[in-house]
Amino acid sequence: MSKSTKLACGLLACGLTFSLAAPVFAEEEAPVPAVTAETPAPEAKEITETAPETTEETPQAQLKTAAVAAVQKTDVSFVKDATTTPADFVTVADTNTTLAFKAGTEPKTAVAGTFSTTIVATLADTTTQEFVVSYKVTEPAKAPVKAAALATAKTNVTTEINVAVKDPSKFVTATSGVTLSFVKAPVVNRLGAQSVTVAATNGTTTENITVSYTVVDTTKPVIDVYEDDFYVSQGEEWAADELVDATDNSGFVKLYFANGQQFLNTSKEGTQTVEIIAEDASGNTSRVTLTYTVVAEDFFFFDAPVIDFTKSTATNIYGTAEPLTTVMILDENGELLGFADADENGNFHIKLDTPLKKWTNYLYR
């Protein structure tokens, strides 16, 4: 038997003896398995008890701020004679609150000074609050006195093209005692919007006033008629500018027949009329009507007879005309008063039965 076996037997015997010798009342312990070198000891298990969490709920107080129904204003002021309302003195926080002046304390602003008024605020629950509010009434601020202008610009000023303007008062209105002059002469040779500067001085102060104006052309051309009753041969060509002349302040003018034709109508014999138009660059027009007579190509024109007033009397008319032509004297109604033939030298003598009268027009043909 080995030493280890002997030792185990000895320990077992001792244990048995100890058990028999123990008192009866001893509590029997649970047997503990023997631990040997070959038998490993059982692992000890750690048991941990977790105490249940205890949560204590703390209720939060809900704070409510009571709304203020109205708040009195400070530093209230008005300009003299201003109109006031209760809202000028108290600010309402609750739209259900109404404001009114307390009877007998209505504010007055007719006089400058410091005063007070009482405002009654009626809340939604019909309770009321009173506010005594001080306020000031002040004089209205006086606007600074501005020195009167020496001159003021006129509006809607127009001037004719190519017509010089020498008077500055056409462009500005000056106060009494003020002298006006152009800083630079106004432009008048160009149509449209322009500007000019006028200097106004009272001897100590000078002001420059710039004025807008418009150069316009409203003047009609002027027509100068060469002859308003004339003869032309059949088939001749006469342009409008050969019968009349025209001028215009703009420096430009054109002449043309109103019927649109390029030349005078000379297609048939007889007395006719024609209208000529003169038009400038701005469309201003002037018109003239001429009377003319178209004669056959074999019709001859002679110079008018020349009366010798030194030799002639009321019943005997002397003069010269185209040789071998007939000279007639007609009254202003076209009635024939007398006639005679000119000799080969052109001299003629007409005897009249009725004397000519002074200051009366007569026609010699």
Rank of each mutant, 00 (worst) to 15 (best):
K64A: 11
G177E: 09
E207W: 03
M328Y: 11
L336G: 00
G192D: 04
A148I: 07
T95L: 12
V111C: 05
V187N: 03
V198W: 01
G338H: 01
K136C: 05
N202D: 11
K102L: 10
K108V: 09
L330T: 04
A342I: 03
L337K: 07
E242Y: 09
T17Y: 14
A26L: 14
H349L: 14
T219D: 12
A37I: 13
K6S: 13
V132F: 07
A314W: 03
V172I: 09
L290G: 02
T158M: 10
I329G: 00
S77P: 04
I119Y: 02
S181P: 06
P52Y: 10
F299S: 12
G192N: 07
V294Q: 02
V288Q: 01
V92R: 03
Q234D: 08
T122D: 01
T210Q: 14
V90T: 02
T173Q: 05
A314M: 07
Y318M: 12
L243T: 03
A21F: 12
L324A: 11
C9Q: 12
G346L: 07
T55Y: 11
T55Q: 13
A296R: 10
F101W: 05
L16V: 15
K80A: 05
N156G: 06
T285W: 04
K73A: 09
P107N: 02
A141E: 10
P52K: 13
G283T: 10
G346E: 02
V79K: 03
T95M: 00
P52V: 13
V216M: 11
V294Y: 03
F302I: 11
F115T: 06
G192W: 07
A13K: 04
S2K: 12
E28N: 13
E38H: 13
L363D: 08
P23Q: 12
A321K: 02
P355V: 00
V288N: 04
G192K: 03
V24D: 12
T105V: 07
I317Q: 01
T95R: 05
A278V: 02
P305Y: 01
T126S: 15
S4C: 01
S176G: 05
Y135V: 05
S233N: 08
K184L: 10
Q60Y: 13
E269V: 14
K6C: 05
K80I: 08
A246H: 00
K357P: 03
D341F: 06
T326S: 06
K102Q: 15
T84G: 07
V79G: 08
D228Y: 08
P323G: 09
T39N: 14
S286T: 14
A112W: 06
Q62I: 06
Q62L: 11
A151N: 03
V120G: 07
F89V: 01
T271P: 04
A121M: 04
L11M: 06
Q62N: 13
V24P: 00
E227N: 13
G251H: 11
L363P: 00
V294F: 05
F89P: 00
P186F: 04
V132L: 11
F252E: 10
T97H: 00
L150P: 03
V232Y: 12
